[in-house]
Design a protein around this nucleic acid. Structure first.
Lengths: 232, 232
DNA sequence: TTCTTGGCTTGATAAAAGTCAATCTGTCTG
DNA sequence: CAGACAGATTGACTTTTATCAAGCCAAGAA
């Protein structure tokens, strides 16, 4: 890893409170690497060798069963993935691939666990990160079980809109087929869901979406903090 | 708490490796209490006051949104619930109610976090427990996104069958409406799904189910370790 | 016993979502 | 520039799932 990149990593919530010594132990063992788009980083069922941190780019977590495939999550900077498998020394439950050219920090499993034992503050950060991941999946699960596909799309648009500055425009950072899989529906159905939302002020232009009647959209979507708010 | 009950708690994976001193600190602050059936223990949105451990009985975790309700999980002895909310000092994402008369250990949030700071071995157990919870939800999510309702039922029956000794009989420890909600379908649809499975050797008798043709059922269900195996 | 009750099942129907095939559209490439 | 291509959309249709209403059945109460 280039030494000038260390400070950026150091600032991440996961690492900011640990001791300098333990941070160096972790990072000297780690790799910071570029990957081209569409590279399979890990395959579900393999044993966990590295903890991954997305420093730049986008990573898709997906899962397969019985010939079907679905997107589980999109990981953007700066976030980790497959932390739970690393901590349990278990096999991955999800596969991961890069969506675009990405820069990833890869920390060997054993170093993560050593740092966890030696540095109580790092242990605290790990737990906070892991609990956050848990709560994110619970929210996804509630979303899927309690809402129709049109409602999921509407709420997702409102969520992105808020996160992107609430200026009337939403930019999708992944293609629509991925959005469809993320929302648990087919691409065809996503198209139709967008049409259903047209009367509620949703104007689609490729990956750029204008929301011209947010109150109407919210009336339909009925957003719920305990599902849609990332920070809760 | 009665002193003769301490040893049983002590043996739980979550507590077995922590120091005697810290264990006593935790348990003197905790309450071990009986609850009748159908008591609402916590409500989603409330802030996390206690970590709960189901010592005896059954607890249902559920969530509501926009007038709809679904079962998120059934917690049986000996397991914890809402650990993530406690560790993040956040609000509950799920509500909980007793299904039958149950005995629960309630540990105040602040004591859990103190013990986490003071006892590295307890911290290790907490992380293992939390990672396990995370992986359980990921499996549930995969189950819901990658399978039809009949497949979910078939796999659930196989799972229970394995866990209960694989002797040809499965006993449901919750009523069918709860099973339906847990599997993400309506009670009517569960009834029909059981009918669909009749040709595959599934004989229903109230809450007791016989599996007379496991190979056929497995051919239909296509069980997947990375979804169905609790221990992976 | 008879009545009531709640959970379960069944049937008819409707809505939601998926599938398949065809078409469109913008981008890339030769 | 034309052609190829991938992603997106649309239409027709099927399957899956939900909804609503009615009936069944076993357990508990009078």
């Amino acid at each position: 890893m280039r030494p000038d990149e260390l400070p950026r990593i150091r600032e991440l919530p996961l690492f900011s409170s640990m001791s300098e010594e333990n941070f160096l132990d972790l990072t000297t063992a780690a790799y910071l690497q570029h990957f081209p788009p569409q590279v399979e980083l890990i395959v579900e069922g393999d044993s966990a060798d590295f903890l991954y941190v997305v420093v730049e780019g986008t990573v898709e977590l997906f899962a397969k069963s019985n010939g079907r495939e679905t997107t589980m999550a999109i990981v953007r900077p700066v976030n980790t993935f497959i932390l739970a498998a690393v901590l349990k020394d278990a096999v991955y439950l999800m596969s991961a691939r890069t969506v675009e050219r990405s820069r990833l920090l890869m920390i060997p499993t054993s170093n993560v666990r050593t740092a966890f034992e030696n540095d109580p503050k790092f242990a605290r950060s790990i737990v906070s990160e892991l609990a956050g991941c848990y709560r994110a999946v619970v929210k996804d699960h509630k979303n899927l079980k309690l809402r129709s596909s049109v409602e999921r799309l509407a709420n997702r648009l409102i969520k992105y809109h808020t996160e992107q500055g609430a200026n009337g425009t939403v930019e999708l950072f992944h293609d629509k087929r991925t959005l469809a899989a993320l929302l648990g529906m087919t691409p065809e159905n996503l198209s139709r869901a967008f049409n259903t939302l047209k009367p509620y002020g949703v104007e689609v232009n490729g990956t750029s979406i204008h929301l011209t009647d947010l109150p109407a959209l919210e009336t339909l979507a009925k957003p719920n903090q305990l599902i849609d708010d990332r920070t809760v």
